[in-house]
């Protein structure tokens, strides 16, 4: 892993080691707040900020922290950034802050963040840790937003409702509606809907991966020997 390129870091974060879909880390916020796309995006971005900053900090201090105390130190670092993010959201996105509620402070307990600090940032340089943090955070945000969008469409028949909470008044026109007589399927909004939706997303990702591997193998066959097929 230590020799992987920046490009590989990005594909790992966004796809092949996506924290939500592959590592299945951070499920608590993932399942709890993704009832609309905007909520998912909001929490995703908050997590993205925290994971980037914590990765960077952990990477900078990695040579001074003794291994015996590294975990408490990482938690303290993450907790400080979460507090900063929480206060900023309270100041600038108050409505969204109210909706996400307890799940913003709970970002501290998001295993994806401490997982990246422990598994990656504490062993890699600042630049690589920053890229890893951004990629992992983006991958998590993407999963959260897609799941939120899915549940919102099925459950409420809207997409990006209340987008103005996040992007200001310009975004109030962003909300899409599926028609007035669309009857939302309540289950999608309720907690079971999050589990079922996540299950389908993981299944979809696995299907796409399988197809990709197949086409790559098919392409690799005629030119076998020149380059090993990517896994």
């Amino acid at each position: 892993m230590a020799t992987s390129s920046y490009g590989k870091l990005i594909t790992e974060g966004l796809w092949s080691n996506n924290q939500a879909l592959v590592a299945l880390l951070g499920l608590c916020p993932l399942l709890a707040v993704t009832n609309t796309a905007v909520n998912g995006l909001g929490l995703g971005i908050a997590t993205l900020v925290v994971i980037t900053l914590s990765n960077a900090t952990v990477s900078i201090i990695r040579n001074w922290v003794r291994p015996e105390v590294r975990l408490p130190v990482f938690v303290l670092v993450i907790a400080s950034f979460v507090t900063a993010v929480e206060l900023s959201m309270n100041a600038w996105f108050y409505e969204l802050y109210k909706i996400l509620g307890i799940f913003i402070p709970l970002i501290v307990t998001n295993c994806a963040i401490i997982g990246r600090a422990e598994a990656f940032a504490s062993k890699n340089s600042l630049g690589r840790s920053l890229v890893d943090g951004v990629a992992m955070g983006l991958g998590f945000t993407l999963a959260l937003t897609v799941l939120g969008a899915m549940r919102e469409i099925i459950g409420l028949g809207t997409l990006f409702a209340q987008a103005d909470l996040m992007f200001g008044d310009i975004a109030s026109g962003m909300t899409l509606r599926l028609g007035d007589d669309f009857k939302g399927m309540l289950l999608a909004i309720l907690p079971p809907g999050a589990f079922i939706g996540l299950g389908f997303m993981i299944a979809l990702k696995n299907i796409i991966d399988k197809r990709l591997t197949k086409t790559r193998q098919a392409e690799a066959l005629p030119t076998a020997g020149t380059e090993p097929a990517a896994g």
Binding site: K183, M185, L186, L187
Partner: peptide
């Protein structure tokens, strides 16, 4: 149950 929960 899907129907009952979703369309009470």
């Amino acid at each position: 149950v899907l129907l009952l929960v979703s369309y009470p």
